[in-house]
Nucleic acid binder design. Structure first.
Lengths: 143, 143
DNA sequence: GTCGGTGCAAACCTTTTGCAATCTA
DNA sequence: TAGATTGCAAAAGGTTTGCACCGAC
């Protein structure tokens, strides 16, 4: 699986997974991808989703987005430089197209900047209106 | 373990763990804490480290710092608002005392800001000089 | 027909938990 | 001595991998 980019076949499951990620305007959790793709391909195995994501990531079509304290999300690559917003209510992650760094961040002497990741937490437009916060699920702890 | 803050005894292992975290000026990985505390308390069990960190976190003395794609680090709380720098060479995480947000980040309509996390990746002063990058260990993948 | 892909189950890794022994207060 | 804490090993969660069968080409 490492040298000649042999074959690479087109399958229903792979198509479905690619489509779900590609047609989303925000990063998706594994369960969201599994759920979405399962609508087209019943009995989709979770291992297949993992493998497909890995393949797509190696191909450079998908990038993983780690939301601190929440988990990993996946989104299609090729978007312009951007960051993420995570809703503490519905636990969905959204793209944010603003970046506070108009120039490289200032760092201590000798430190160099290569990349950076910014996640803003808060409530999305839908959850901000609701009086009662939805209950959190799973490992959603944060400092 | 949830209501009256009963006793809470002082033990060598707990002291050692607290000391390691408290005396560090940067967030530490679990292995770093284990290694450091083990110097004072031989045969320190990893479960004890996890339990102590959990306790300290619940007490508010420690906060966890998740470095995207790298893993969790722990640092003592009570520091002023700050962010983190992660060296892609030595895999150490450092505090950065600058924050690019002089005012709340602008968000889409209806979205509200509660907190944010910023991690800058690059090379620290030590690793920046080395011509050959050190080899990465474990699960240090990043998009 | 080939050989890549899939699904299932086992393997892995990291973190948590049960329990008997140990240690603090 | 009572009850918190520890260490070990088992359990739990999430992700990866081995393998036989299936399906794209």
């Amino acid at each position: 699986m490492r040298k000649s980019p042999s074959a690479a076949r087109r399958t229903r499951q792979r198509d479905a997974i690619e489509k779900v990620i590609g047609s989303s305007d925000r990063p998706l959790a594994l369960e969201e991808i599994l759920a979405g793709a399962s609508r087209e391909v019943r009995e989709l195995g979770i291992a297949t989703v993992y493998r497909s994501i890995k393949l797509l990531t190696e191909r450079g079509q998908v990038v993983s987005v780690e939301v601190p304290g929440v988990g990993v999300r996946y989104e299609s690559s090729g978007k312009a430089h951007h960051h993420h917003f995570h809703c503490n209510g519905c636990e969905k992650t959204f793209d944010l197209h603003a970046c506070p760094f108009t120039e490289p961040p200032s760092l201590p002497d000798g430190f160099s900047h290569e990349t950076h990741a910014i996640t803003i937490f808060g409530k999305c437009d839908t959850c901000g209106h609701r009086p009662k916060p939805q209950e959190r699920r799973r490992t959603a702890r944060r400092a």
